[in-house]
Amino acid sequence: MNAPTQGQLALAAMLARGGSPDGGAISHVDARVYTSPDRFVAEQAQIFAHVPIAIAPSALLPANNMAVPHDGFGKPLLRTGRRMSSSTSAATAAPAWSRDARW
Rank of each mutant, 00 (worst) to 15 (best):
R83G: 01
I53N: 06
D38F: 06
A12S: 06
S89H: 09
R17N: 11
L9S: 10
H70V: 15
G24P: 03
A42I: 05
M66G: 07
I47N: 05
A25M: 09
G74T: 00
D100K: 02
L60I: 07
G19Y: 05
R32C: 09
R32P: 01
T80A: 05
A31C: 08
A90F: 03
V51I: 12
S86K: 14
L15M: 12
N2L: 12
V29N: 04
A31W: 10
N64T: 02
P76N: 06
I26F: 10
T88E: 15
V68K: 05
R79T: 08
V41T: 15
A67F: 00
A94Y: 01
D71A: 15
Q8R: 01
N2W: 00
L9V: 05
T5P: 07
V33R: 06
A63E: 14
A93M: 00
L78H: 04
Q44S: 15
P62L: 00
V68N: 05
A91S: 14
A56H: 01
K75D: 13
P76H: 08
G24S: 08
Y34N: 10
A16G: 05
N64P: 03
G81A: 11
A42T: 11
T35H: 07
S85P: 01
S89A: 11
G81C: 03
L61W: 10
E43T: 08
H70T: 07
A31Y: 09
G23I: 02
E43N: 13
D38W: 00
R82T: 07
M84T: 02
P21W: 01
S27M: 08
R32G: 14
L9M: 13
V51Y: 07
A25N: 12
N64Y: 01
T5N: 10
M1S: 13
H50K: 06
L11F: 04
S36K: 03
A94V: 01
Q6F: 04
A56F: 05
K75Y: 07
Q6H: 08
A3R: 14
Q46D: 15
T92Y: 02
R99N: 12
S87T: 15
R99K: 08
D30A: 11
E43I: 05
W103Q: 14
L77N: 03
A25T: 08
A10L: 04
R32N: 15
M14V: 06
A49Y: 09
A67Y: 05
A45L: 04
P37E: 12
D38H: 07
A93K: 03
P95M: 00
S98W: 08
D30C: 09
Y34M: 02
G81H: 04
P4Q: 09
R79V: 15
D100R: 10
G23V: 02
R32A: 14
S20I: 01
F40H: 13
Q8G: 00
P37M: 03
D100C: 11
T35D: 13
R79G: 11
L78G: 00
D38K: 12
R83C: 01
H70W: 14
R17G: 11
F40S: 13
P95N: 03
G19H: 03
Q8E: 15
S36R: 03
